[in-house]
Design a binder for these strands. Structure first.
Lengths: 207, 207
DNA sequence: TAGATTGTTAATCGATTAACAATC
DNA sequence: TAGATTGTTAATCGATTAACAATC
């Protein structure tokens, strides 16, 4: 029986990975579930459960070999591949994504930017060319884009998503504060800042 | 017995709220749990559970009065108050927050920006002054800041958080891809884009 | 062998879904 | 009264935690 890995587990893996990379650079050979747990204020049981859910990384009585676990998590998250991104919307949010400093070490490359502003079309941002949104289909095909990052205003998010889907893109990261509909074969992840902000104002109002 | 409202519920409330605002503007009086559920691809039972968990908004046999539910959710999320934000880090991410178009309708105001770059200190971004990060304490006190938004690189995130906590700020939104430690009376919400991205690459690699 | 630590089975906890009584 | 729809109790599902056998 195939047991799917929970989203909660998948979201903890990059945290483990970051720490493992630091340890690896420091030359550490082995790490225990207790040390990983302490780092992230979770239980060692949680760490062991997560890691045994996604693979066979540990050695009983010893711990986890840093390099093996690091490579293992990278592989589960698909970080052994290069990921080619397109950013749609060359506003400040788009630019933040384009210039995001930590992308290279995750093998994420922004290879195209799309906008409707004629003053921006044809220019380069951080060395990446801005294309006319109307030409998305052709450019996506030529540049082999894996993931579309939506950084346009909420009222145009669905339109942009439809264009990405039409161009055959199967992964969408949506920054617009708007629920968008996608077919079952397209993976959508939302990064809705207003949800984060209202979680905070809810908690602050409780005090 | 006090039953705490689950985080999952709190994160769905802003989605309901957005739709309610649209309905309210359109002049709609009443909405049902079925209509709300259809909008967000969840079950009506989930909607009713959420809403009954946070208050007494519905009328049996009728539905929810749009205006009453709207105001109710706004109040639970603390949106009846004005929230004063400081952005720490005037890079592209900071600018995206400063210029975020949807903040006004949530009563969020960016009232101070902090950076260490002397070329930026003293200038204004979107009408908001950039202060020297070294003067955070004094400015936060004078401007009465409620929430600090961390948009600096990962390696400085904890330092910035410590400064915010020291200045008495109780709410932090952290964009840096880094686990930061805060005392129990400080509310921390993480907006870690790399976690979102790796969730996507995980799913895409599964196909 | 003794000590340490993983991986898994069982128990618990929390969130979602189902069913239906209450009531407009 | 009949139809619609909420709110809540019970059932289910899923994730976390506890306990401990396996084993380095």
């Amino acid at each position: 029986m195939f047991k799917p890995i929970s989203n909660a587990t998948i979201e903890r893996l990059p945290l483990y990975l970051r720490f493992l990379r630091v340890l690896d650079v420091k030359g550490r050979d082995v790490v225990s579930s207790v040390e990983l747990a302490d780092m992230f204020e979770i239980t060692p049981e949680q760490v062991r459960r997560d890691l045994s859910d996604v693979g066979q990384f540990g050695i009983k009585g010893v711990g986890y070999e840093v390099k093996i676990l690091r490579r293992g998590i990278e592989k589960i998250l698909g970080l052994q591949y290069r990921w080619s991104l397109a950013v749609i919307g060359a506003g400040e949010f788009g630019r933040a994504i384009i210039e995001f400093k930590d992308f290279p070490e995750y093998n994420f490359n922004v290879n195209a930017i799309f906008d409707v502003d004629e003053k921006l079309i044809g220019t380069k941002i951080n060395g990446v060319k801005v294309y006319d949104f109307a030409k998305l289909n052709a450019v996506v095909e030529r540049k082999i884009i894996d993931i579309g990052v939506i950084t346009v205003p909420a009222d145009r998010a669905q339109l942009v998503a439809d264009a990405l889907i039409d161009a055959g893109i199967k992964g969408i990261l949506n920054f617009a504060p708007k629920k968008i509909a996608v077919p079952p074969d397209v993976h959508l992840v939302n990064a809705d800042i207003l949800i984060k902000m209202t979680t905070l104002t809810y908690r602050l109002s409780q005090d």
